[in-house]
Simulated scan of single mutants.
Amino acid sequence: MNKTSYICNIFYYSMISGKFAITIHILTLLTKFPNDYLSSEFIAGSINLNPVLVRKEIANLKAHHIVESKEGKNGGTKLSKAASNITLKEVFEMTLDTINLGYAKNQPNPDCPVGKKINQNLAELYAEMNEKVSLQLSGITLEDFSNQF
């Protein structure tokens, strides 16, 4: 397995909530219609998701100054900055912050050679995974990603 596949697999398993995928979908749609305000209903139709959930993600994007919204009959949301100036690392950090696949729910046995160090070693593994994912995503802009469609 090559590095990209490895990172993608890690990424896939860390996307349990789907927030990253939903946010990237929203941003990619907005990139394809740069001069239009898209309604949450339109966006939700593309994602096949409830518009309320789309609006929650849009609120997060607004808080990070990635999109702007306009209310009313011709209202909706559009990008507030160029897609070429938004990296997927930024999107990752505003949706997931870090990859953490979890720790044991019970307290491992401190007398066991594995149990006494498992959480420390997992924390180090997760930190390394986050560094690699951040590095990979920092080199991909929203525009780069959107050009695939």
Rank of each mutant, 00 (worst) to 15 (best):
K116T: 11
K3W: 04
P113K: 07
N100G: 04
E131W: 07
S69A: 15
L30A: 12
R55T: 10
K19Y: 14
K56H: 13
N119G: 02
L30V: 11
E41I: 12
N50A: 14
N109F: 09
I10M: 14
L30G: 02
I16K: 01
V67K: 02
A83L: 06
N35E: 08
K117Y: 08
M129D: 09
Y37H: 10
I26H: 00
T87E: 00
M129I: 14
I118L: 14
A63Q: 09
A83P: 10
E90T: 15
K56A: 09
V52M: 06
D36A: 08
L49Y: 09
N74P: 03
I43W: 00
K116I: 04
F20Q: 01
I43A: 02
N35F: 00
I66W: 00
G76L: 01
L29S: 09
N9T: 13
E41A: 12
S69M: 14
G102E: 05
N147G: 14
N9E: 12
T28V: 13
A59I: 11
L142H: 03
S14W: 03
S138A: 12
K89Q: 14
S146W: 03
E124D: 08
A44K: 06
N109K: 09
F92Q: 03
F145A: 11
P113S: 13
Y103M: 05
G45Q: 05
I43F: 04
L96Q: 06
S39N: 06
T4M: 13
I10D: 01
V114S: 13
D144M: 08
N50T: 13
F20S: 05
K132S: 11
S134E: 02
G75K: 07
E68I: 14
T87G: 02
R55H: 04
R55I: 06
S14T: 15
Y13Q: 07
N60K: 13
S17Y: 02
T95M: 07
P34E: 04
K117Q: 11
G18L: 05
K132M: 03
A21W: 06
A63E: 13
A104Y: 11
K19H: 13
S138K: 12
S40E: 11
E124W: 05
D36R: 09
H65F: 12
F33K: 12
A83Q: 03
I43D: 02
N74T: 13
I66L: 14
I66H: 03
E143V: 07
K73V: 15
G72Y: 11
L38W: 02
S146N: 01
H65V: 14
I10V: 11
N109M: 01
D144G: 03
L38G: 00
N9L: 12
K105Y: 09
V67Q: 03
D36C: 06
L88I: 03
F149Y: 08
I86V: 15
L27K: 00
S69I: 15
E143N: 12
N2G: 14
V133D: 01
L135C: 10
E93M: 08
A82R: 04
M1L: 14
F42G: 01
Y6W: 08
N119Y: 01
I24F: 08
D111Q: 08
G75L: 10
K73Q: 11
S17R: 12
H65L: 06
K117I: 13
